[in-house]
Structure formats: C-alpha cells, structure tokens
Amino acid sequence: MHLDRRRFVTLLGLMALLPIPRLGFADPREVAMDTLLIDKPDGGVPNNSLPVLIYHRVIPPDAVDNADYLEHLFRSNGWPPQWRYPVYTFTHFHSNTHEALGVFSGTAKLQLGGEHGKIIDVKVGDVLLLPAGIGHKQISADEDFMLVGAYPPDIKADLCHDELPLLAARTKAVKAVPLPATDPVTGHSEGSMLVWHKS
C-alpha cells in the first residue's frame, strides 16, 4: 500500500497513543508504607527525628529474581546497591548516611532503635528506609534471610556501635546528613520525598 503524506501523519498520530516501554527505568508502583518514629537516643545510639519508612509488597509477583529486581529498583531511583547480606546480630548504626534495606529472601525479626528498641517482623518484599543514626540488629531469622543494601550515591557507610561516650559527636554527625535527593522505592515522589521533607 502506498503511504502518502496524509496516511503517514495519521499513522504517526496513532503511534503516539501506544504505550512506550520504559526500559531501564523502575516502574512506578503504589506500595503500602508504614512509619515508625524512633527519635530518642538509646544508650550510645542517637536515632533520628526522621521516621523509619517500611514499604510492603515492593517486589511484584511476576519478578523473575527478587534480588535483581530490588537492585534494579534502587539503582534506577539513584540509590546504588552495595551488598547482599543479612543484618548484623549486634546493634549498630550509620552516622554518615541513610540506608535502604530490601528483603529478597526469608523472614526475620529486627530490633530498631537500640537495645530497648522496637522489634518488627520483616519478610520478602519489605523495604526499610533507615534514617542515619537509627540502631538496628537482627534478633532471629530464617536460614535464607537476605537483603539488598543501598545508600545514596558516592557514600561509603561507616559502622558505629552502641558506645555511650561517643553519643554527642555521633548525634552531631547524624544531624549533618542531608536529606536524600530521591527515594529508593518511589523515586522522585511519595515515600521519603513527602514524609521526610515535611519532618
């Protein structure tokens, strides 16, 4: 069939209505989210006035590889993934960065906030966004419990222990950590882009 100018323009108009694949980008998805405020120090753990964000069912049911999916999601949203590992079984925190933890296998009980902190259950598809200074440790876990860990760009997370004599200096360091430019799960909208920027 001869394609004259009028048919060509019509065809272009129809093509504009077709969905364009977003290869290389994370799909924006509505996910349920809880917040947990841990704003008081616990021993040598400073914690933070920003709430912990806990996203649920982040991994879609048709994901081929859960870990790959989370790494792609974090990377696409400006949070380069840096490791796959469980959570340390001692209380620790980071004074120089916020941290995203995505569960890709198993279940666990984690304690947030320090030795007197709240114990929460996490499972596959959960993502925790921990503000700098929030204490965390693994209380118990399945043998296959594993996470993807990610931080904002160009960050090498420090590893701080619960040490009361260092609390003042670490609290000051935590307060100096800037808000992230993007959210590891939702990108440029929702999540920490709303909740943390309002805090």
Rank of each mutant, 00 (worst) to 15 (best):
M1S: 15
H2G: 12
R5C: 08
R7I: 13
F8V: 11
V9P: 04
L12E: 12
G13W: 03
P19N: 11
L23K: 04
G24A: 07
G24V: 05
F25C: 09
D27C: 04
P28E: 11
R29H: 12
E30K: 08
V31W: 01
A32P: 08
T35D: 07
T35F: 05
T35N: 00
T35M: 09
K40G: 02
D42M: 10
G43F: 06
G43A: 08
V45Q: 09
V45R: 09
S49M: 08
L50P: 05
L50D: 06
L53A: 03
Y55K: 09
Y55W: 12
H56W: 13
V58Q: 03
I59F: 13
P60A: 10
P61I: 11
D62Y: 11
D62M: 11
V64D: 14
N66F: 07
A67Y: 02
A67F: 09
Y69C: 07
E71G: 06
H72K: 12
H72P: 05
L73Q: 03
R75M: 11
G78T: 07
W79K: 04
W79Y: 14
P80R: 10
P80D: 10
V87D: 02
T89I: 07
F90T: 14
H98S: 06
E99Q: 12
A100N: 06
G102Y: 00
G102A: 05
V103S: 03
V103G: 03
S105N: 03
G106E: 02
G106H: 05
G106R: 00
K109M: 02
L110D: 00
L110V: 05
Q111M: 15
L112P: 02
G113S: 12
G114E: 08
G114P: 02
G114N: 10
I119A: 07
I119C: 09
I120R: 07
I120M: 10
K123W: 07
V127S: 01
V127C: 02
V127E: 04
L128D: 02
L128R: 01
L129N: 04
P131A: 14
G135F: 03
G135D: 04
H136N: 13
H136D: 06
K137D: 07
K137I: 06
K137C: 14
D142A: 14
E143S: 13
D144L: 10
F145R: 06
F145K: 12
V148Q: 13
A150T: 09
A150D: 08
Y151T: 13
Y151D: 08
Y151P: 01
D154N: 15
D154E: 15
A157R: 08
L159I: 15
L159M: 12
L164E: 14
L164Y: 12
P165S: 06
L166S: 15
R170F: 09
K172A: 15
K172R: 15
V174E: 03
K175Y: 11
A176W: 03
V177W: 04
L179K: 10
A181M: 12
T182H: 06
P184T: 07
V185G: 01
G187Y: 01
G187C: 04
H188P: 00
S189W: 00
E190H: 13
E190K: 11
G191V: 01
M193E: 08
L194P: 00
L194D: 14
L194E: 14
V195Q: 05
V195W: 01
V195A: 04
W196T: 06
K198N: 12
K198T: 11
S199D: 12
S199T: 15
